[in-house]
């Protein structure tokens, strides 16, 4: 069991926030990838992600992960 312990502030590295972040799974994954990997040098507005359809989000996630050297996961069941 894990829980209820606030992460010490010196261990938090929150990027500058946006008020209008995506909340769907694919949109959030893409948002996190871009925010957490500033070396990508991509410029997105939240509205850019939210205007994409799911296949476009999936394809862009694949491209971003490839650029970062992240291999695709092979299973969806753990």
């Amino acid at each position: 069991m894990v829980g209820g312990v606030d992460l010490p502030s010196h261990l938090i590295d929150t990027p500058p926030g946006d008020d209008n972040f995506p909340t769907d799974d694919l949109g959030q994954q893409l948002y996190w990838l871009v925010k957490m990997n500033p070396s990508l040098r991509l410029q997105f507005r939240d509205s850019d992600i939210q205007l994409m359809d799911d296949p476009t989000k999936s394809k862009l996630i694949d491209h971003v992960q490839y650029a970062l050297g992240i291999k695709p996961l092979k299973e969806t069941t753990v």
Binding site: L26, Q29, L73, K74, E75, T76, T77, V78
Partner: peptide, 9 residues
């Protein structure tokens, strides 16, 4: 393939 969506119990 995306994140896991199922788990085995």
């Amino acid at each position: 393939m995306g994140l896991p969506t199922k788990l085995l119990l």
